[in-house]
Amino acid sequence: MMNSVFFDHATIDRWISEDAPLLDLTSHMLEVGQQSATIEFVIRHDGIVACTEEVQRILTHCGATTQSLIASGSTVTAGDVLLCAEGPAHAILRAWKVGQNLLEYACGVARTSSKMRAEIAKHNPHIALLTTRKHAPGLRGIALKATLSAGALPHRLGLSETILIFPQHIALLGGWDQLKQMLTKKKPGFAEKKIVIEAESVEQAYQAIEAGADVIQFDKVDPNQLQQWVSVLRADWPSGVFLAAGGINVNNVGQYAQTGVDGLVTSSLHYAAPADIGVRIQPK
Rank of each mutant, 00 (worst) to 15 (best):
residue 243 L to W: 08
residue 96 W to D: 15
residue 155 H to V: 09
residue 69 L to H: 05
residue 196 V to F: 09
residue 111 R to T: 14
residue 277 I to G: 10
residue 248 I to Y: 02
residue 8 D to E: 05
residue 281 I to M: 14
residue 139 L to Y: 02
residue 160 S to P: 01
residue 211 A to Y: 05
residue 165 I to F: 11
residue 283 P to Y: 09
residue 79 G to W: 00
residue 182 M to K: 13
residue 178 Q to T: 08
residue 241 V to Q: 12
residue 20 A to Q: 05
residue 92 I to R: 07
residue 227 Q to N: 08
residue 29 M to P: 00
residue 170 I to A: 10
residue 111 R to H: 13
residue 259 T to G: 08
residue 150 A to C: 04
residue 199 A to Y: 05
residue 86 E to K: 13
residue 28 H to A: 06
residue 148 L to S: 04
residue 149 S to G: 04
residue 255 Q to Y: 03
residue 280 R to C: 10
residue 140 R to C: 03
residue 36 S to Q: 14
residue 272 A to C: 09
residue 26 T to V: 14
residue 108 G to F: 01
residue 96 W to G: 08
residue 201 S to A: 08
residue 104 E to Q: 15
residue 174 G to T: 02
residue 233 L to Y: 04
residue 147 T to H: 04
residue 37 A to F: 02
residue 177 D to L: 10
residue 90 H to I: 07
residue 58 I to G: 10
residue 128 A to Q: 09
residue 245 A to G: 06
residue 38 T to E: 13
residue 184 T to H: 05
residue 159 L to H: 03
residue 111 R to I: 04
residue 68 S to A: 11
residue 179 L to V: 11
residue 227 Q to W: 00
residue 227 Q to T: 14
residue 159 L to A: 08
residue 146 A to F: 03
residue 230 V to I: 15
residue 91 A to W: 09
residue 72 S to G: 15
residue 195 I to A: 09
residue 107 C to F: 00
residue 116 M to S: 07
residue 143 A to N: 14
residue 227 Q to L: 04
residue 172 L to T: 12
residue 47 G to W: 10
residue 184 T to D: 13
residue 108 G to D: 01
residue 52 T to N: 01
residue 242 F to Y: 15
residue 59 L to G: 00
residue 145 K to L: 02
residue 224 N to C: 07
residue 14 R to F: 12
residue 25 L to N: 08
residue 230 V to N: 03
residue 187 K to F: 05
residue 65 T to Q: 14
residue 78 A to W: 03
residue 165 I to S: 10
residue 75 T to G: 01
residue 212 G to T: 10
residue 89 A to W: 06
residue 134 K to Q: 00
residue 118 A to L: 06
residue 156 R to G: 11
residue 207 Q to V: 00
residue 220 K to T: 12
residue 90 H to L: 07
residue 218 F to I: 07
residue 186 K to R: 12
residue 180 K to E: 14
residue 209 I to A: 12
residue 8 D to R: 04
residue 29 M to Y: 09
residue 182 M to W: 09
residue 4 S to L: 10
residue 250 V to K: 04
residue 38 T to Y: 11
